[in-house]
Computed example of a mutant assay.
Amino acid sequence: MNTTRRTVLGALGASAVAATTTGLTPAGAGAGAAPGRVPPELRPGGAFDAFLRAEAEQGRFSGSVLLTHHGRPVLARSHGMADRDRAVPNGPDTVFVLASVTKLFTAVAVAQLVQRGQVAYQATVGTYLDGLAAEVADRVTVHHLLTHTSGLGDPFRMPGFWDEAPGWSSVEEVMAGYLAFIRTDRPAFPPGARHAYSNAGYHLLGEIVAAVSGQPYHDYIREHVFEAAGMTRSDFYTKPRWRTDRRIAHPYARAESGEWEDVLEERLFVGTPAGDAFASCGDLARFARALTGGELLDPGHTAITLGGKVPPAPAGGGGGGGPARTVFQAYGPLAALERGQWVVGHGGGSRGISTSVDLFPDTGWVAVVLANHDVPLGTMPAVPAKARELIVAAGT
């Protein structure tokens, strides 16, 4: 239950890693350049539009897609139903649960506090938080948490988590309950020795944001990320709101019968720093524009956040590198060098959820794909992969 698809996408490798930094040009550095030609493959009626329609017609995609080029919308499409019981279709303003794409907001919040001199990347977790085991408090750093090299794991997989979590009925109970399970966790390897995707690590980052800023985590993100970026439909909606708000897509997963079943009740009461904020495609495009345009961070800290730090080990489904693709874990997103171009983004997934946002800083593209159907375990989501393929090809 609630196993994230990042086991496929996040390159959960076991190889040794080095704290290196790529030469990634700050995203948005090309924002002032003259917009290039939009290839016919990416325009309405082009190859990507046809591919997306075919995926929807064959029952493999339900959701919304937005492609922008230098801030200008190029293609916006929606397919399928946001709420099957009430016959509400997905549309351009439909709000989707983001799963692990939420980690981008947490990473930006940390970078803002670093920029203000209130947090240091090399400081240990114990500098900011009390009540953690010594091997976490004294050895795990903010850098380790951001790069998934802390050795901490996933509370969703811990014994007893799903016995307690359904009973949490407030934001405070979710945050405290989630943290209580993390307090029992111990690093599976020496911090910095390996890369292993960690929901626990990103929850601790959110706790650091709250402790240092003096604001509850969710309030901080609302003010300093969502409002600052003009993300008017974004929030951490609670489960009761999700059930009733017709703007918010319900998540659907395949039942054993082959029918699509609503799996909303499998989610927590509210999202955490590790996952399940909500946004529309337009809001995520605005987030990308604000991040690359200096509205959320100064250029230096934008470059630090989006520049690759740790090379994840190759994983099934293409998480690693290859002759034409070299991947690094950045402070939040993955940074991939594909055919000489940087692609910086994050995906998220669980039962009934498949999301991604990709920034192409060399050519000014942003691709947002938000789906309320999941994809088969062990496979890559086809729609964002096709968008990346065509956008990269257009820039070569």
Rank of each mutant, 00 (worst) to 15 (best):
M1F: 10
T3L: 09
T3R: 04
R5H: 12
V8K: 07
L12Q: 08
V17M: 07
A18N: 01
T22F: 10
T22C: 05
P26K: 08
A27C: 14
A29M: 06
A29E: 09
A33H: 15
A33F: 14
P39G: 05
P40M: 13
R43M: 07
P44R: 03
P44S: 05
A47N: 12
A47T: 15
D49A: 07
A50L: 03
L52S: 01
A54T: 13
E57L: 01
E57M: 02
S62D: 06
V65A: 07
H69A: 11
P73Q: 03
V74C: 05
H79P: 00
G80W: 04
R84K: 03
R86I: 10
V88S: 06
N90K: 12
D93I: 09
T102W: 01
K103P: 10
V110F: 10
Q115W: 09
G117W: 05
Y121C: 11
Q122N: 08
Y128T: 02
Y128W: 10
D130T: 14
G131I: 10
L132D: 08
E135R: 13
D138S: 13
R139D: 00
V140E: 08
T141E: 02
V142E: 00
H143F: 15
H143V: 08
H144K: 09
H144L: 09
L145E: 05
L146V: 10
H148R: 02
T149Y: 12
T149I: 06
F156T: 04
E164S: 04
P166L: 08
S169D: 06
S169N: 07
E173D: 08
M175W: 11
A176Q: 13
L179K: 01
L179Y: 00
A180W: 03
A188T: 00
F189R: 00
F189E: 00
P191D: 00
A196T: 01
N199I: 07
A200M: 00
H203Y: 00
V209T: 06
A211R: 11
G214C: 06
D219R: 09
D219H: 13
R222F: 00
E223I: 13
E223K: 12
H224V: 11
H224G: 06
F226P: 12
A228V: 07
T232Q: 13
S234Y: 14
F236T: 14
T238K: 02
K239R: 10
R247P: 03
R247Y: 09
A249R: 08
P251N: 15
A253T: 14
R254M: 12
S257A: 15
E259T: 14
W260V: 11
W260T: 09
E261K: 11
V263K: 14
E266Y: 15
A274W: 00
A279T: 03
D283R: 06
R286Y: 11
T292S: 10
E295I: 05
L297P: 11
D298M: 02
I304E: 12
L306K: 02
G307Y: 04
G307Q: 06
G308K: 03
P312C: 04
A315V: 13
G317R: 02
G317M: 04
T326V: 02
G332R: 01
E338K: 02
V343Y: 03
G347P: 03
G352Q: 05
G352C: 07
S354T: 12
S356H: 14
F360V: 13
T363Q: 07
W365K: 14
A371T: 09
H373A: 06
H373K: 01
G378Y: 15
G378I: 15
T379F: 05
P381E: 14
P384W: 13
A385T: 15
K386E: 15
A387W: 15
A387S: 11
A393E: 15
